[in-house]
Design a protein around this nucleic acid. Structure first.
Length: 1003
RNA sequence: GCCCGGGUGGUGAAAUGGUAUACACGAGGGACUUAAAAUCCCUUGGUCCGUAAGGGCCGUGCGGGUUCAAGUCCCGCCCCGGGCACCA
C-alpha cells in the first residue's frame, strides 16, 4: 500500500471517535497534566489556517504527555455568548442560539479534520444554561463578598454586617474599600447608628462594599441606539455606527471591584511562567504608582481639592491646580461671573471621548475657574483651572501643576501664559520641564540641594506633619464594567425591591434567558430583556442587563475539571486533582482583558475557599498571528461626458460602467502621477482601450450619448480593489484572469489592461480576514495534503510565538517527508523505499540495529523530547527530517528503530503514526504507547573532528580520539605539517583547546 | 515618548560565547521515463585568484568595545513588528 493520506486519516478519525481514545481517565493515581487552549468564539466565518496554530502546539504537548504516562486533560469548548450572533439576530430575526448552534457545528467539523486529541465528552458552551448557572452562581458569590485589606482577601458580606453591628464604620478603616466616593462619600456611623438604619439604607451602604456592585458610572451613552458604546465606537462625539450623538453621563452600572485585587494581581505575576511581554502589559495596565495625596484648601470655601502626585518633592513649584472637566467641585467653586464660560468649556470637553482626549496630546485647552487655593506651605494663592488633559477617572481627577517639573503642565502653562519657576538646579525653564529623576532641587525651601529620591520622602513627611497630605499608592486599574444592554449574554441574577438590588436565591438558578419578540432595546431605551412578558421574581422586577463576554471565560477552565456536576461548578475532588492549568495556549490580544479577569476570578474563588490555588495557569504561551496576504488590483475611475443633447439617464450609464470596471495591471500604479513620459504613453494606450470598452458596454445596454472623460482630467482616479486570493496564481503577484472572472460578474465584464504578458496585482501582508478576501481555509489544505502535513507544516513554519504571513511555499517539503517516512516501512518496488507512494509492501526487519542506526534514533529522541519541553516545534520537525534522510541513506527498516520513532512522531502526525503503529502489529492506539527514552550510551563518539582555527578563523579540521587530553591534542595539532606551514616556523603565542569543541591558535 | 519582541542567503528559518547559514522551499544541472508526474543524485551567501584540484578576502541592520574566539555579552545608534500612553 502506498501512503494515501485521505483513506488513512478518514479511517483513524472514525476509529478515535468510536473508541473514545482521548477520554480522560478517572484515575487519580496517575500524575495529571492540564493543557488548555483559549476557547474560540464560534463566528460564522469558521476557522482559517491561523486558528489551529496554537491548538496544534498544545495538541502535541498533550499527546506527548500522555505517552509520558500523564493523565492528560485537554478539553475544548466554545465561548458561545457574544455580540456578533446578536447582531445577526437583529438583522435576520433568527434566534442567536440557533446561529450559534450552526456555527459550532461547522467549527467542530473543521477541528475534527485536523485530528486534535480533545476530550469532547467535556465540551462546554458558555451559553448553555447548565454552564451559565454557575457563572451566575459565581456572580452571586461576588455580590455576597467584600474585600478586607487587613487580611488581604475577600470575605462574606455577613461578616461585614456583624462588624457594623459591633463597631460601626469609622470612615478610615483601611480594611474595606468603597466605590464612587467622589459623588457621595460614605459618612462614618456608629454601631448604634447602624441598628437604627432602615433596611434600605443598610443595603445601600453594603452595596458600597460588594465586589459585584451597582453604582453610578461614567459611560458613553447613545440615546438613539439605546446602548452604551465603547471608547472606540465613538468618534467626534457621535457613534461610529449611524453617526448618532453620544453623551458622557453617569448611569447605574454593574461593576466588578477588580481594583481590590490590584496589588495581588501585580505581585502574582512574579511567579508565573508567562511571557515577559504579557506580564509587562499587565503591570502597565495595573499601573501602580507611589506618591502622595495632597489637600489644597480652597479660598472662600469649606472644601479642599485633593490631588495625587508622584512628585511631592516639586510642591514648591506648583503654579496652578488643574481639575478634570468631570470634577465635582467645578460648579461650586466657580464665581457667578465666570460660570457661563466655564460651563461652556466643561460641556465641550466632557463630551469628547476619553480616547480622543488622550490621543490629541498637542491640542492644549482649558479655562480659568476664577477660584484659588492656598499653597500648603507658602500659603500663597494658586489659581484653579480646568483642563481636559486631566482625566476624571484617574487618581482624584485633579493635579497640582508644576510646569518646571512636568512637561504637560509646562505645555499648559506656556499656552496660557501662567508664570512659573524652576524647581531644579541649573535648568532653563524656557525650553521645557526638567523631568529628570537625577536632578537636584532648587527654590524649594527645606528641600533645596536634595536629590529627587531623597526629597520625595522628606516632602511627604512634612505634608503629614502639617496634616495636609499623606503617602498614597495609586493604581491605574479601574473597576470593570459588568453590565451590557444586550440580549445574548448571561442574565444577572438580581431582582429589585424598593429600588434595591437583591440576589436571587441559589435555588432559582439558572435564571434562563427569556424569549423576546425582538433582540432590540425597547422604545424607551430599556435593554432587550425588558421586552420579555414576565421578567420578574415573586412580582419584583429582574435585572435587565446581561453579563459581558468575559464572564464565562473567566472561570471556564474549572468547569472542564468536572463538566457535568450539578452540585458545584466542579466538585472539590476534581479541583483537588486537576489544580491549575499546566499549560495555557492562546493569542496575546487577550493580555489585559481576559487574562486579567481570569486571574481575578481565580483569586476571588480562592479567597472564599472554593479552590485551593489562586492563579489559574502556571505557564502561558502566546502563539503568533498567521497573517494573510491580500491581493489588490487597480481600478480606474473615470467620469462621463455627454456627447449628445438627448442622452440616456446618467445614473444608468454610471451603473453600467460600474458593473464593467476598467482594471489596470499593478505596474501602472504610478499611472496618474503626471508628467513622466512613460505614464503619458501608457495613459494614451489605456484611454483608447477604455473608450472602446465603454462604447461596447453602452451599446450592449442600449445606452447612448456618453463617453469617458479624457484621462488626464484631474477627476480621474486610481483606486485599489481587493480581489479574492483564490484568483491568484500561487503566491506570486500574477492574477489568473479566468478564475477572477468566475468570482463575480463585475470582473467577468471588466476590461483588464496589462503592459506585459500577465495581469499583475499588488500583494500585501494583512491580518487574515473575510473583509480582505485573504482567508485560507484549513479544510482546503487538509483535502489536498492531509491533516498530518498541515500540522507539521504549521509547526515547521518557525517559532510558535512569532507572527508570520501564511504561504504554502514550503508545504511540499513536509508532505514529502511524510511520504519518505512511510516508505521506510515499505519494500522497494513501484513505490517502496526510495520511491514514490506507489505499491511497496509493508516490511520491517527484526534484525538488531547497527550503531549508526541507533545513534540516529537516540539523537532524534533526545532532540525531540527537549524541543517539545521548550515548545520549539519547528526544530523538532527538522530533526525528524534529518533522521528520515539518514535512515533512508542507511536503508534501515529495522523495527527496533522505526517503532520508537513512530511513537515520537505520533504527537506531530497522529494519523500516519497510528496507521504505521497498527501495521507494526499493535492493536492498541499509539496514544497509549510508552514514550521511548533516549540513552546517552548510543550517542557517545569515539573521536571528534576538531576545527583548527588561527586567531578565531577556522582553517582546517583534524580528528582526534575523544579520550585525548588537552595537552596531547595541543601537541598533535602543533605537530601537524599543515599547521606548521601556516605558522611559518614561528611559535604560537597561545593555543586554546576546548575539548570536543575547538582548537584556537593565536599567532 | 515609554515598555516588550525582532533584524542572519532569493524565501521560511537553525545555531549552551566555540566550524555562521542546520532543516525546508525555490532555482540550476543530472539520472530514470516515449513523455510527463513522482522519485533519486549533485550545485546553490558574496566576491576574487586558478584550466583544475584548491585557495584568498568579505560576510548575521550600523558604529564602537570586551574576549584566544561575538549572530550570541556590553555601550551608542538605525530600522521593523507588537503593546501602552496627556497616568499627574
Amino acid at each position: 500500500m502506498g501512503y494515501e493520506h485521505r483513506d488513512i486519516e478518514r479511517k483513524w478519525r472514525e476509529e478515535w471517535r468510536k473508541r473514545g481514545t482521548y477520554r480522560v481517565a478517572n484515575d487519580t493515581s496517575k500524575p495529571k497534566y492540564y493543557v488548555l487552549d483559549m476557547f474560540p468564539y464560534p463566528s460564522g466565518a469558521g476557522l482559517h489556517v491561523g486558528h489551529p496554530l496554537g491548538y496544534i502546539a498544545s495538541d502535541i504537548v498533550a499527546r506527548y504527555k500522555r505517552n509520558k504516562g500523564f493523565n492528560v486533560l485537554h478539553p475544548m469548548g466554545y465561548d458561545s455568548f457574544g455580540l456578533p450572533a446578536e447582531q445577526y439576530a437583529i438583522q435576520t430575526g433568527q434566534h442567536p442560539a440557533k446561529t450559534t448552534e450552526v456555527n459550532i457545528a461547522r467549527y467542530r467539523e473543521q477541528l475534527d479534520n485536523i485530528g486534535f486529541s480533545f476530550d469532547w465528552d467535556r465540551e462546554v458552551r458558555t451559553s448553555n444554561a447548565d454552564f451559565y448557572k454557575w457563572t451566575q452562581w459565581i456572580f452571586l458569590q461576588l455580590f455576597d463578598s467584600w474585600y478586607d485589606h487587613a487580611e488581604d482577601k475577600a470575605r462574606p458580606i455577613s461578616e461585614l454586617t456583624e462588624r457594623f453591628a459591633k463597631h460601626g464604620w469609622s470612615g478610615d478603616d483601611a480594611c474595606a474599600i468603597t466605590g464612587n466616593e467622589e459623588l457621595d462619600p460614605l459618612a462614618e456611623f456608629s454601631h448604634s447608628d447602624w441598628a437604627t438604619f432602615s433596611e434600605k439604607h443598610q443595603q445601600q451602604i453594603l452595596l458600597r462594599f460588594r465586589l459585584a456592585y451597582l453604582s453610578e458610572a461614567w459611560v458613553n451613552w447613545c440615546p438613539a441606539l439605546g446602548t452604551v458604546l465603547a471608547n472606540d465606537e465613538v468618534k467626534d462625539g457621535v457613534s461610529e455606527r449611524g453617526g448618532h450623538p453620544v453623551e458622557r453621563k453617569r448611569m447605574p452600572q454593574w461593576s466588578m471591584r477588580i481594583t481590590a485585587y490590584a496589588q495581588r494581581l501585580l505581585d502574582g505575576l512574579n511567579d508565573l511562567d508567562w511571557s515577559e511581554s504579557i506580564k509587562e502589559a499587565q503591570r502597565n495596565w495595573i499601573g501602580r504608582s507611589e506618591g502622595a495625596l495632597i489637600r489644597f484648601q480652597l479660598k472662600d470655601h469649606q472644601e479642599k481639592i485633593e490631588v495625587f502626585t508622584t512628585r511631592p518633592d516639586t510642591i514648591f513649584g506648583v503654579s496652578f491646580v488643574t481639575l478634570a472637566p468631570e470634577h465635582e467641585l467645578i460648579e461650586r467653586i466657580t464665581p457667578p461671573e465666570k460660570l457661563e464660560e466655564v460651563r461652556a468649556y466643561v460641556t465641550q470637553a466632557k463630551n469628547r471621548s476619553e480616547r480622543e482626549r488622550m490621543t490629541e496630546v498637542k491640542r492644549v485647552s482649558g479655562v480659568f475657574t476664577g477660584a484659588y487655593v492656598k499653597h500648603p506651605f507658602t500659603h500663597m494663592d494658586i489659581p484653579v483651572w480646568v483642563g481636559d488633559y486631566v482625566l476624571g477617572g484617574y487618581g482624584t481627577g485633579a493635579v497640582m501643576a508644576v510646569p518646571g517639573g512636568d512637561q504637560r503642565d509646562w505645555n499648559f502653562a506656556t499656552h496660557f501664559n501662567i508664570p512659573f519657576t524652576a524647581v531644579t538646579e541649573h535648568w532653563d525653564i524656557s525650553k521645557g520641564a526638567d523631568e529628570s529623576k537625577e536632578a537636584t532641587l532648587a527654590n524649594s525651601v527645606f528641600l533645596n540641594g536634595m536629590k529627587v529620591a531623597d526629597a520625595i520622602p522628606r516632602a511627604i513627611d512634612e505634608l503629614e506633619l502639617h496634616g495636609v497630605g499623606e503617602r498614597r499608592i495609586n493604581f491605574r486599574l479601574r473597576d470593570a464594567a459588568f453590565g451590557r444592554q444586550r440580549y445574548w449574554g448571561e442574565p444577572i441574577p438580581i431582582y429589585y425591591k424598593d429600588g434595591i438590588p437583591y440576589p436571587l436565591p441559589e435555588s432559582e438558578l439558572p435564571l434562563v434567558l427569556p424569549e423576546v419578540d425582538k433582540f432590540l432595546p425597547t422604545e424607551d431605551g430599556e435593554p432587550p430583556l425588558a421586552r420579555a412578558t414576565d421578567w420578574t421574581y415573586l412580582g419584583h422586577p429582574l435585572e435587565t442587563t446581561t453579563m459581558p463576554g468575559w464572564a464565562g471565560s473567566s472561570w471556564y477552565f474549572l468547569r472542564y475539571m468536572d463538566p457535568k456536576s450539578d452540585e458545584r461548578f466542579a466538585t472539590p475532588e476534581a479541583i483537588n486533582y486537576w489544580q491549575q492549568v499546566d499549560l495555557y495556549v492562546g493569542g496575546s490580544e487577550h493580555a489585559t482583558g481576559h487574562l486579567l479577569y481570569f486571574r481575578f476570578w481565580t483569586k476571588f474563588l480562592h479567597d472564599r475557599g472554593w479552590i485551593n490555588f489562586d492563579e489559574p495557569a502556571k505557564k502561558l504561551v502566546n502563539q503568533g498571528m498567521i497573517q494573510g496576504r491580500s491581493a489588490k488590483v487597480f481600478a480606474l475611475l473615470v467620469g462621463l461626458e455627454q456627447t449628445s443633447s438627448s442622452p440616456s439617464p446618467q445614473a444608468e450609464a454610471e451603473s453600467a460602467l460600474l458593473s464593467a470596471p476598467i482594471l489596470v495591471s499593478a505596474e501602472f500604479q504610478e499611472l496618474l502621477v503626471k508628467g513622466t513620459e512613460q505614464s503619458a504613453k501608457a495613459l494614451k494606450g489605456i484611454e483608447e482601450a477604455a473608450q472602446q470598452h465603454a462604447a461596447r458596454v453602452f451599446e450592449s445596454k442600449g445606452i447612448s450619448g456618453y463617453q469617458l472623460y479624457a484621462f488626464d482630467d484631474p477627476r480621474t482616479v486610481l483606486r485599489r480593489v481587493y480581489i479574492p486570493i483564490s484568483a491568484m496564481v500561487e503566491d506570486g503577484a500574477v492574477v489568473d484572469l479566468e478564475k477572477l472572472r468566475g468570482t463575480s460578474s463585475e470582473f467577468d465584464n471588466a476590461l483588464f489592461f496589462r503592459g506585459g504578458e500577465h495581469f499583475m496585482a499588488e500583494r500585501e501582508v494583512d491580518k487574515m480576514s473575510k473583509r480582505w478576501m485573504n482567508v485560507v481555509n484549513p479544510d482546503d489544505i487538509v483535502a489536498k495534503y492531509g491533516a498530518d502535513t498541515l500540522r507539521l507544516y504549521e509547526m515547521f513554519l518557525g517559532p510558535l510565538e512569532q507572527s508570520k504571513p501564511w504561504d504554502t511555499n514550503g508545504i511540499e517539503g513536509t508532505s514529502r517527508f511524510l511520504k519518505k517516512f512511510w516508505n521506510l516501512f515499505h519494500e522497494e518496488g513501484r513505490g517502496g523505499r526510495g520511491s514514490d507512494g506507489g505499491e511497496g509492501r509493508f516490511s520491517v526487519s527484526d534484525e538488531a540495529p547497527t550503531k549508526a542506526e541507533l545513534k540516529v534514533l537516540h539523537a532524534t529522541l533526545k532532540k525531540v523530547e527537549e524541543d517539545i519541553e521548550k515548545m520549539s516545534f519547528n526544530t523538532s520537525v527538522s530533526q525528524f527530517m534529518i533522521a528520515c534522510n539518514a535512515l533512508q541513506e542507511l536503508k534501515c527498516n529495522k523495527r527496533a528503530v522505526l517503532e520508537p520513532l513512530t511513537i515520537a512522531l505520533a504527537p506531530f502526525a497522529p494519523h500516519i503514526a497510528e496507521e504505521l503503529w497498527s501495521l507494526l502489529g499493535h492493536a492498541e492506539s499509539v496514544t497509549g504507547a510508552k514514550w521511548p527514552q533516549w540513552d546517552a550510551q548510543y550517542l557517545v563518539e569515539d573521536s571528534f573532528s576538531y576545527p583548527i582555527s588561527f586567531n578565531g578563523k577556522t582553517r582546517l579540521q583534524l580528528e582526534f580520539p575523544i579520550g585525548l587530553s588537552k595537552e596531547e591534542v595541543e601537541a598533535q595539532v602543533l605537530a601537524n605539517p599543515e599547521v606548521q606551514s601556516r605558522l611559518e616556523g614561528k611559535p604560537p603565542k597561545k593555543v586554546i583547546v576546548v575539548p570536543k569543541r575547538i582548537v584556537n591558535i593565536v599567532v
